[in-house]
């Protein structure tokens, strides 16, 4: 009884804060509010049943290969939305045939080559507010709480998904930003084969923070041509059981 009332009060407060933050009730909402991964272990982390669209997500990486993985993660998510995608970078060196193989058809991609990091943020914000795209992906080495908040609000008002891809040094601390989820992706060794050939690539996918409070770490296979991640099939030694690590509840910063 006591806990039931507490939950109701908390729910009411959350809704009020949400309304205050938006100044008004969000009027335009896309039909899809969440983007499912197709992996129950991941989808069950959000009450919506998947990664929230109309929100900002941050994907971190610490190496060149990690950054490629982060690009593929964002591209695969954007591809699953089935809408036009804008990719903004100061050096757009991504490789379209490779993106098509992780589920982002290039016919839906618009590339913007920005001349500065500041311009990346400006282009992202304008594209998000335009509300006709499915997803906006930006490569931003630096992001402050204020700029991330602007992007998050733009994503919400335009009902568009936003990803910021960030390459950082191994030891740099994560500063607080207003993202709905923060991920870290690194390459992981692929499954051992009998023949000395490489199998399907793998990632260590870490959810560092999320608005729903969930965190975790999974070993996944790179997206297929439809943009869906897969959990590796069980191995003989059982070393990869997902999620192999799950921390307690932590609120998003």
């Amino acid at each position: 009884m006591q806990t039931g009332r507490k939950t109701a009060v908390l729910k009411d407060l959350r809704e009020r804060i949400h309304r205050l933050e938006r100044l008004e009730a969000p009027t335009r909402r896309s039909a899809v509010k969440a983007l499912p991964f197709g992996i129950p272990a991941l989808d069950s982390l959000w009450s919506e049943g998947g990664l929230p669209t109309s929100a900002l997500h941050e994907v971190n990486s610490v190496s060149v290969a990690g950054f490629a993985a982060a690009s593929a993660f964002a591209a695969a998510s954007a591809g699953r939305l089935g809408k036009p995608v804008l990719w903004c970078s100061t050096s757009p060196d991504f490789y379209a045939p490779g993106l098509a193989q992780v589920g982002l058809p290039v016919s839906r991609l618009i590339v913007v080559r920005a001349r500065s990091e500041k311009e990346v943020l400006a282009v992202m914000e304008e594209a998000l507010r335009h509300a006709s795209l499915g997803c906006v992906i930006g490569e931003t080495p630096r992001l402050t709480l204020t700029t991330s908040r602007r992007l998050a609000l733009a994503a919400e008002s335009g009902a568009t998904m936003a990803f910021t891809l960030r390459r950082r040094r191994k030891d740099s601390a994560l500063e607080p930003i207003a993202a709905a989820s923060r991920w870290r992706i690194n390459a992981a060794p692929s499954s051992p084969h009998l023949i000395p050939q490489s199998g399907r690539g793998r990632w260590t996918l870490e959810l560092l923070r999320s608005r729903s409070g969930a965190t975790g770490s999974w070993n996944v296979e790179v997206p297929d041509t439809q943009g869906y991640l897969h959990l590796p099939s069980a191995l003989a030694d059982g070393s990869t059981v997902a999620p192999f690590e799950s921390r307690g509840e932590r609120r998003a910063g």
């Binding site: 036009p84 379209a96 290039v106 016919s107 839906r108 991609l109 618009i110 590339v111 913007v112 080559r113 920005a114 001349r115 311009e119 400006a122 282009v123 304008e126 594209a127 335009h130 006709s132 795209l133």
Partner: peptide
């Protein structure tokens, strides 16, 4: 499928960063 009509966004971005810097593949 395809880009659809977002030419007003493309115009706006092209006038911001230069027409050659907004492109499809």
């Amino acid at each position: 499928d395809g880009i659809g009509d977002i030419s007003d966004l493309v115009d706006s971005l092209a006038n911001q960063v230069g027409a050659r810097n907004v492109y499809c593949i």
